[in-house]
Write a protein that binds this DNA or RNA. Structure first.
Lengths: 261, 261
DNA sequence: CCGGATTGTGCGATAATCGCACATTCTTAG
DNA sequence: CTAAGAATGTGCGATTATCGCACAATCCGG
C-alpha cells in the first residue's frame, strides 16, 4: 500500500466530477424532478455545490430546468450508452436473447455483475412477468437472482464470500436465502452443476434458471436466464425444460466473445 | 439576454464536471479501451486534466485500469439508468413495444428526440433486420428515420427547420432525402397525415412506419415504429398493413402518459 | 540495443470552487 | 388576505483544489 500513491490519488481527485455524477444519480423513478435543496440533501452536498452542478449539467444539456425543478434529459443516455457501445457484450447477446425468447415464449435476459448487483444488458420479454419492470441497465441484488448466483459462483470463492458478506441480503420473500453460509454452499453447488435455479426468492410466483456465458478464453463474463411463472412451470422442472436451450446459446456465444471484458 | 446572468452562469460552471463527462463520452464501439493521451486528444483536454478525470472515474468505480488502458465499467450504466428510471416513458412503452412486436412478428421500437437525433428508449426485435444493432440509448439521425420525422413534425415548424438546417443530413442511401426544402415539405405532410413512412433512406432494404405518441395533454412525447424489410413489404403497403395497430397503441398509451415529459 | 511515444511525478502559481449570509420569490396555512 | 415558512437566486472574500509545464520512468517497435 503505497501511502505516497494514495496521497497522489487524493491530489488528483476532481471533486467536481464526483459531485456531478452523484447529482445525476440522485434522480430515479420516485424523483423525476428535483429542486436544488432536494438534490443537495440526496447527494450530500451543500446547496451551493448542488446548484453549481445542476447549472453545469443544464448548460451541457444533461439536465433541464422546469419551474424551479430540474430534470434529466435524454442526453444522459449518452453516458450509459458510452458503455453499451464500448462493450461488445450487449450487442452480441441481445439477438440471442431475442431469439431464445421468441422460440420458447418466455422472458429471457442477460446480465453482468457489478459489485453486489446484477445489471441487465440485454432483455426480451414476452409479457411483463414481474411487478417491477426491468429494462436495460436495471439492477437487482445478486444474492437472490439466478443470474447473480451464477456470476458470483464464477468469482474466486474468497471474493464471492466478501461480496456476499458486504451485501444487504434483504429477504424479498419467505423463500429468500439470506444466511451467508447457506449462500456460499449454494454457490458451490452452482459452480459444480453449471447452472442455477431460483424458486420465488425475489418475488412470489417467479421462477428462473440461469447459465454463465463464457468468452473464448473460458472466463465467465455474463449470465443468461429464462424467467417464468411458477404456475406455468415448477422450479424443479426448469432444467429439464430449458437447460438444453440455454446451454446451446452458451456454446454458440463462447467463440464470439473475445475480449477480457 | 441577461448578460449579468451569463456572467453568473460562467462563474458557477464546474469545469471538472464537464471535462469528466466528455471523458466518459470518449468511449465507444471503436474505442473500448483508451490511454491517457488518446482520451486527452478525443476530449480536447490537456493530458494532465484527462489523467485526473480518468483517475477520478476509476476511484469512483466508473472506469477501470487494465495495463495502461482505461475502460468503462458497468457502473456508468447507472448514469443512463438514472434517466430511464426517472422517466416513466421507457417503462410505459416497453410492454407495448414487446406486445406489438410479438403480435405482428416485426421489429418495433420507440424513441424520443434529442437535438437532431432520435434516441431509442424501448425496442423489441424479432430478428436483426439492420446491419447495425440498435439497443436502448442508440442514436440515429432524425432526418432520415420514420420516428425522427414524426418527432420533428411535432415541433414548432421554425424549430424543426432550425434543427434540420443544423443537422449534417448525410445521405445513407441513394434514397435519402437531404435537401432542406424537401424535408420541410415532407414534415408538413407527416404533420397532416399523422404518420411517416420511410423507404430505404437509412439502409437499403429497410422500410418503416412510425406514428407519434402523445401524452394525456396531447403533446407529442415519443414516436413508435415498425421496421421491416422491403422484400417482405413494399413501403407503400405499410400503412394498410400496420397503421391500424400503431394507431391503436397510440390511443392506448395517450391516457397513460401524464407529465410534460 | 536504441529511438519514439506514452505514462507517471513534482511543484508553484493561478484561478476556480466553496459556502456563508442576505435578498427574493413562492407556497402554505390560518 | 396576510403572514410564516421554505426554497431559490445572489454577492463576495478566502481557501484550496485544479492546472499544466517540465522532467523522469517506462513501454514498444525496429
Amino acid at each position: 500500500m503505497p501511502t505516497r500513491n494514495d496521497a497522489r490519488a487524493d491530489r488528483d481527485f476532481i471533486a467536481g466530477l464526483g459531485k456531478g455524477l452523484s447529482v445525476i444519480e440522485c434522480f430515479d423513478e420516485e424523483n423525476v424532478s428535483l429542486g436544488v435543496s432536494a438534490v443537495a440533501a440526496r447527494a450530500k452536498l451543500s446547496r451551493a455545490a448542488a446548484r453549481r452542478c445542476l447549472l453545469t449539467l443544464q448548460r451541457l444539456g444533461y439536465a433541464e430546468l422546469d419551474g424551479g425543478l430540474y430534470r434529466l434529459t435524454p442526453r444522459v443516455l449518452r453516458l450509459g450508452f458510452a458503455y453499451i457501445a464500448s462493450n461488445e457484450l450487449p450487442d452480441l447477446l441481445q439477438p440471442h436473447v431475442d431469439q431464445l425468447s421468441g422460440e420458447i415464449h418466455e422472458s429471457c435476459s442477460a446480465s453482468i455483475l457489478d459489485g453486489n448487483e446484477i445489471v441487465y444488458i440485454a432483455r426480451a420479454a414476452t409479457k411483463r412477468i414481474m411487478t417491477v419492470a426491468l429494462g436495460i441497465g436495471a439492477r437487482l441484488p445478486a444474492h437472490c437472482t439466478s443470474m447473480g448466483r451464477v456470476l458470483l459462483a464464477a468469482l474466486d470463492p474468497a471474493e464471492a464470500a466478501r461480496r456476499i458478506a458486504a451485501a444487504p441480503r434483504k429477504a424479498f420473500t419467505p423463500h429468500t436465502v439470506t444466511r451467508k453460509e447457506d449462500l456460499l454452499q449454494i454457490l458451490q453447488q452452482v459452480r459444480q452443476q453449471g447452472f442455477c435455479v431460483i424458486d420465488q426468492e425475489l418475488e412470489i410466483g417467479l421462477v428462473s434458471i440461469a447459465v454463465p456465458i463464457h468468452n473464448a478464453a473460458g472466463k465467465t463474463v455474463a449470465a443468461l436466464n429464462i424467467g417464468t411463472q411458477s404456475v406455468r412451470f415448477a422450479a424443479a422442472d426448469l432444467p429439464a425444460r430449458f437447460l438444453a436451450r440455454l446451454k446451446a446459446a452458451q456454446k454458440d456465444l463462447k467463440p464470439l466473445i473475445n475480449g477480457p471484458a
